[in-house]
Computed example of a mutant assay.
Amino acid sequence: MSGEVTLTGTLTCISEDEAVRVRASLPDHIALTRAEQGCISFDVSPTDNPIVWTVSERFEDAASFEAHQTRTASSDWATQTKGIARAYKIDGM
């Protein structure tokens, strides 16, 4: 499949402990993702609620989005944020 893939949604913690892990892991996760081939944009931004973030991702195509998913599955980000609720909408797949 070709064409841009976008992901939008939220990451919602249930405790300050989860939020601390997100804050600690997020800078490296953002930097690594933005450096990936095919990443157009990648933003994870805090909201007015200190345990909720908005997520917005754009990748050139399905292959680059899938490569991102594969890389992150075994990353420190995945380990630190395992079990944290995500509500995402993916378009272009």
Rank of each mutant, 00 (worst) to 15 (best):
F42V: 07
G38K: 07
A62R: 15
R71G: 09
V55P: 03
S41N: 13
C39T: 12
T12W: 00
S15I: 01
D43P: 01
A78G: 03
S45C: 06
S74C: 05
A62N: 05
T79W: 04
I30D: 01
T10Q: 08
K82Y: 02
C13F: 03
K82M: 02
V5A: 04
I51K: 09
A19M: 08
S75H: 01
T70Q: 10
T81E: 00
D43F: 07
H68S: 09
A78W: 08
K89N: 07
A62D: 09
A19V: 12
D43C: 01
T33Q: 09
T54P: 08
I30S: 03
R86M: 14
Y88M: 13
R23Q: 02
T79L: 11
S45K: 15
P50S: 04
V44I: 14
A62I: 10
R21M: 03
R58W: 04
I84Q: 07
S75I: 02
I14W: 09
I40C: 08
K82C: 02
S74D: 13
S25L: 05
V22T: 10
C13K: 07
G9Q: 08
T6E: 12
A63K: 12
Q80W: 00
V5R: 06
E16C: 00
D43E: 14
R86V: 12
K89Y: 00
E60H: 12
S75Y: 01
G83M: 08
I84K: 08
D91E: 14
Y88K: 06
W53I: 04
F42A: 05
D91K: 13
T72W: 00
F65A: 11
A19L: 08
D61C: 14
G38L: 06
A78I: 08
C13N: 03
M1V: 15
P27I: 09
C39P: 00
T70A: 15
T79E: 12
A85N: 11
L11N: 05
H68L: 13
R21G: 00
T79G: 07
L32V: 08
A24T: 15
P50Y: 10
P50H: 03
I90C: 00
E66T: 15
A78N: 10
A73H: 12
S75N: 02
R21D: 01
K82V: 07
G92H: 05
A78R: 13
S25C: 03
A63I: 07
V22H: 01
